[in-house]
């Protein structure tokens, strides 16, 4: 069953067509990776799917509900959350406070203002769990801008996970990482439970092939090809547009 459906989505900026008739289906539990050269419209697709950018045509269906046309903040309530290509954190707040915000976002007590946040045991427990699970417990009171780049990248994912989504959109989770950090992040993604369906934009082919169940190639704002990793790595045209004739390394 498809958990996430993008149907005939088109998007243009001031007459410039960025996405054209993009259709995409992601099945429950699937790890779907979107690849494509720079400027193919990958991040724009994420922005359109989450409602950050209004779309011109088409629709997006998440967990059976149409989400396109709704404001961006509703995506999380429908079980879909995302990370950003460039770290987009609360740089002046501590790690813990960042996670507090992420955990509280969809809680009924998010509008409470007569009791300090530190009195909400459920929130504290969830934060603690995330910190422990992702190895940031020791760092919990550090100001985020003091963290290493890799740690910030990790926090980016933790914040998205805090709302317990069943669909997670990761926008280049390994971008800017050292090889060691990349390997670590790949393992983290692989270790995520199958109850979380993943849609990932990724450049690093090793990462792509080690996590993908299915790959969609985006080119000039259109879906060029969608298929299993073997189909994609064996396709001569993909090599042509994406790698300029080079070989596709299969990890």
């Amino acid at each position: 069953m498809s958990l996430l459906k993008v149907e005939h989505l088109s998007k243009s900026f001031k007459g410039l067509q960025v996405l054209r008739d993009v259709s995409l289906e992601v099945r429950e539990g699937e790890r779907h990776v979107i690849i494509g050269p720079n400027g193919a419209g990958k991040t724009t697709l994420f922005n359109c799917m989450t409602g950050t950018l209004p779309i011109n045509e088409g629709k997006v269906v998440v967990n059976g509900q149409q989400i396109s046309g709704l404001p961006a903040y509703t995506a999380v309530r429908m079980g879909m959350s995302r990370t950003f290509q460039k770290n987009n954190l609360f740089g002046e707040l501590s790690v813990e406070e960042n996670i507090h915000l992420a955990v509280t976002a969809c809680k009924p007590y998010r509008f409470h203002f007569l009791k300090p946040a530190s009195k909400y045991a459920e929130m504290l427990a969830e934060t603690q769990e995330l910190l422990a699970q992702w190895g940031l417990w020791e760092r919990r009171s550090r100001i985020v801008s003091e963290l290493s780049y890799g740690e910030q990248r990790l926090l980016e994912v933790i914040l998205a996970l805090a709302s317990k989504p069943n669909i997670l959109l990761l926008d280049e989770p390994t971008s800017g990482m050292s090889p060691a950090e990349t390997v670590q992040t790949t393992m983290l993604i692989q270790s995520m439970p199958r109850s979380i369906t993943l849609l990932v934009i990724e450049h690093d082919m090793e990462v792509v092939f080690s996590i993908a169940d299915r790959i969609t190639v985006l080119h000039h704002g259109e879906v060029f090809l969608s298929g299993s990793p073997d189909e994609i790595s064996g396709d001569a045209r993909v090599k042509e547009i994406y790698f300029g004739g080079g070989t596709l390394k299969h990890a």
């Binding site: 903040y73 950003f84 609360f90 740089g91 915000l101 300090p116 946040a117």
Partner: peptide
């Protein structure tokens, strides 16, 4: 120091992230 107040502070820090987290 309340959840609402923390949310407000978060918005001052980073609106786009707050939206992505699900805050209106």
């Amino acid at each position: 120091s309340s959840p609402l107040g923390k949310g407000v502070r978060g918005i001052k820090e980073n609106e786009s992230r707050m939206t992505a987290l699900g805050y209106n």
